[in-house]
Amino acid sequence: MNSKKKRNHSAKQIQDKLFICFCVAVTFLSVSALVVLLVTIAKQSVGHLDFDLLTSYPSRHPEKAGIKAAMWGTVWVCTICVLIAIPIGTATSIYLEEFARKNKLTRFIELNISNLAGVPSIVYGILGLTVFARMFGVFGTVNDPFVEVGDPTSFWYFRLPLGSSIIVGGLTLALVVLPIIIVSSREAIRSVPNSLREASLAIGATKWETVRKVVLPQAAPGILTGAILSTSRAIGEAAPLLVIGGFLFIRFTPANVFDDFTAMPLQIYNWASRPQEEFHAVAAAAIIVLLILLLLFNGTAAIIRYKFQKVKIK
């Protein structure tokens, strides 16, 4: 009886060890896939990954081709996307979690948001083209705008319809990432212990004060994780930008949010599908820059998250 129990025990220990081995193997598998990817791209990009790449415009000569316009386009579009999507996404999830009554309507909204997270991004591109870029045609066309203020090269230029511009790229990408932000922010808000809310309300705080001073600081790290995930998605999107009419060959950097733009995924896609092998190398170098840019965006979010984690109520 006793020895049987012991055997059973050691069998379980072996099982336990096997499971740990399995977990380590799986982790290494995904990490090594990333390493292989990075090494092949880095190897391919040798000779093109230099400062000239960042300061040159597109060219038919691979050795002269650069990503200046594409890089600034991506920075502008993604910044606008984040500035629009995070406040709206967070506000939506606060409403749904803290204020909305749990009835059929809110369940319907919730279901739709989860479904929207799975819609292919090109669909948002078509939406962005009709709603933001052309504005259903009620304000005329870009060449003959209904409202136009200032010189197209000045910083305060304004125009309706918005046209295929940076602001439309940002708005469209915001649509793409909004469902992701909402889903992850709600998850973060839900994980704030109810006892904290009750304590806050018990000492006389209003609901708004509770949300602002207790729930939000507690949920902020989780919300920012969602923001990081969505930036990573937005920075790599090519299809919706192509549909709303993002350009590819541009020899100037944006002057205002109504300027024409191009983005790095478009440029990379075009170079990678060119017949000349030298262009594939330029594409590889651009991919490295895109990854670094992504790290910068995410690094900023990570620093903010760290700050929030420090002010957490103990």
Partner: peptide, 14 residues
């Protein structure tokens, strides 16, 4: 662009 540097030419691939 070498000949007329101030003209803004943009090309897309829709």
């Amino acid at each position: 662009a070498e000949e007329a540097p101030r003209v803004r030419v943009t090309v897309g691939i829709s």
